[in-house]
């Protein structure tokens, strides 16, 4: 038996919004420790890794490890049927071929349940080692979304250059070029507005704007985003999900052929 309850549907809606542009389907691996989803986008250029910790759910029961392959488009449709302040309970029997989403209104007067067929997904699971990155940038997530949107007008790709002074985002194409420089915040009054750079070595990497823009769909989940970079390895774009866990996007850099 698997059962996980959240007092508020909003967070689950935001999580689905953050992944559904990149992934059509995904396997939710459920265990005692929580729920994990790892999947590559269709073109295998980026990887999404979602972790939700069991102790942050309002109720969590997982008698045996369970892998539930879900169509994320269908899941998003079902979650649209929940009001933001509804309690959401996700339920599945062991070895079941369906999962049930139950929504309960705050006054307990409306209860709805939606059953969804599970899928057998043959997805490659990747081991992601803990890595020390040359540069780690923390910045307001809205600012990052804005920069990705603005620079995508100029080019398919964006160069991110990080030094200890700051981080520079650049794009150039037929229309012209754009550069946005952010200096490290000198006086941190409000932590969520700060730009903080931890640098071991300066890094310059190029990435596809299309994917960066897809990652910024997670902006409503967290005020801050963390970008971790080292030469010639995937960028990690991380959004924390309050005390519930995090969503990390990995993106392969563009390299000279």
């Amino acid at each position: 038996m698997f059962e996980a309850r959240l007092m508020n549907a909003t967070i689950l809606k935001k999580i689905l919004d953050a992944v559904k542009d990149l992934l059509n389907e995904g396997t939710f691996d459920c265990s005692d420790s929580g729920i994990q989803l790892q999947a590559m986008d269709n073109s295998h250029v980026s990887l999404v890794s979602l972790t939700l910790r069991s102790d942050s759910f309002d109720k969590f029961r997982c008698d045996r490890n369970l892998s539930m392959g879900m169509n994320l488009g269908t899941m998003a449709k079902i979650l649209k049927c929940a009001n933001n302040d509804d309690t959401v309970t996700i339920k599945a029997q062991d070895n079941a071929d369906t999962v049930t989403f139950m929504f309960e209104s705050q006054n307990h007067e409306k209860v709805s349940d939606y059953e969804m067929k599970l899928m057998n997904l043959d997805q490659e699971h990747l081991g992601i080692p803990d890595t020390d990155y040359s540069c780690v940038v923390r910045m307001p997530s809205m600012e990052f979304a804005r920069i990705c949107r603005d620079l995508a007008q100029f080019s398919e790709s964006m160069v991110i250059c990080c030094t200890k002074e700051g981080v520079k985002f650049s794009a150039s194409g037929d229309l012209g070029s754009a550069n946005v420089k952010l200096a490290q915040t000198s006086n941190v009054d409000k932590e969520e507005e700060a730009v903080i750079i931890e640098m071991q070595e300066p890094v310059t990497l190029t990435f596809a704007c299309r994917y960066l823009n897809a990652f910024t769909k997670a902006t409503p989940l967290c005020n801050q985003v963390q970008l971790s970079m080292s030469a010639d390895v995937p960028l990690v774009v991380e959004y924390r999900i309050s005390d519930l866990g995090h969503i990390r996007y990995y993106l392969a850099p563009k390299i000279e052929e």
């Binding site: 590559m40 295998h44 250029v45 980026s46 990887l47 490659e124 699971h125 990747l126 081991g127 992601i128 080692p129 790709s157 190029t206 596809a208 390895v233 995937p234 990995y250 993106l251 392969a252 850099p253 563009k254 390299i255 000279e256 052929e257």
Partner: peptide
């Protein structure tokens, strides 16, 4: 020309 490798080439299976 810049291109990108598959993300799975950076990580090990498992």
């Amino acid at each position: 020309i810049k291109n990108q490798k598959g993300i799975n080439t950076y990580f090990t299976a498992g």
